[in-house]
């Protein structure tokens, strides 16, 4: 991990209130899928850096991408930043999702903005076949489909209201296809309600299921113990750090 100054190369609205920002870094070859970047806003009143998953990267041009929805004051400021603006950023942070040598074919499931974690996972693990299931509330919220088609052998998009792609909850659609796909692990990123649904719907599944957690963060590097999550290991529940022990955990050990 290191603290660098990045330059904004683009910052475009790609869905309803959803933006993709491409930043120029010193290097991106050390980025693993599932890791995140902690970005400092130019507004000095907002002391905390904002953590975003490293959505995608380009090793030739040394750029990385974040994809974010405007949900609060911080993302509002971010969405208004112009090309050429320089931002301080600490990266890459957290434990990524390492696949090579472990799995041959995996299923990626994204729920809403959780889908932003998936492209980097597939791009970093080119020897692993990735099949991807994305769920969004409606057509206006659908993002990253094209990017994921570049790196996955199959991409299925579903919307809750049926306004785009398949109709219904993506967890149910993914579960229906699971047996025919022959995957040996599942990685999912979405809201907590989705993890609860997966715990229930995928209860009879015997392959490992990994999820990425989020929590309000302080330092982002593991020192302040602010971003805690409850994990059960060896029969004992305890608090772990989302930023350093995670953000990727096996679903069966996450206490929801």
């Amino acid at each position: 991990m290191r603290d660098i100054v990045c330059e904004i190369l683009s910052n475009k609205e790609v869905g309803e209130n959803i933006f993709e920002m491409v930043l120029l870094a010193d290097r991106v070859d050390d980025i693993q899928g599932g890791q995140f970047v902690n970005i400092q806003l130019p507004n000095k009143e907002m002391l905390l850096r904002r953590p975003f998953c490293l959505c995608d990267f380009d090793e030739v041009n040394k750029t990385f991408t974040i994809c974010y929805a405007v949900v609060g004051e911080g993302t509002k400021v971010l969405s208004g930043l112009a090309v050429g603006q320089q931002l301080k950023a600490t990266l890459p942070l957290g434990n990524g999702f390492l696949l090579s040598g472990k799995y041959n074919k995996i299923m990626l499931i994204g729920g809403g903005m959780g889908s932003a974690v998936l492209p980097a996972i597939a791009r970093r693990n080119k020897d692993v076949e990735c099949v991807c299931y994305l769920g969004f509330a409606n057509k206006g919220k659908v993002v990253l489909e094209e990017k994921l088609r570049e790196v996955c052998s199959k991409v299925v998009v579903a919307t809750d209201d049926g306004s785009y792609g398949e109709s219904g909850f993506v967890t149910n659609i993914a579960k229906a296809d699971l047996d025919s796909l022959g995957v040996d692990a599942i990685f999912c990123c979405g809201p907590e309600v989705m993890y609860r649904a997966i715990k229930k719907t995928f209860a009879d599944v015997n392959i490992p299921i990994f999820v990425s957690l989020e929590q309000r963060m302080g330092c982002g590097i593991g020192a302040c113990l602010v971003c805690n999550c409850k994990i059960e290991r060896e029969g004992k529940q305890g608090y772990y750090r989302v930023c350093k022990d995670g953000p990727v955990f096996e679903l069966k050990e996450v206490v929801l």
Binding site: C224, L225, V226, N228
Partner: peptide, 21 residues
């Protein structure tokens, strides 16, 4: 320590409640 959330941002400040973990 305390359950999450343990931190809130305010103007030019933060409020924390880690609970001595």
């Amino acid at each position: 320590g305390n359950p999450a959330p343990r931190i809130a941002e305010t103007k030019s400040g933060i409020i924390n409640s880690v609970g001595l973990q």
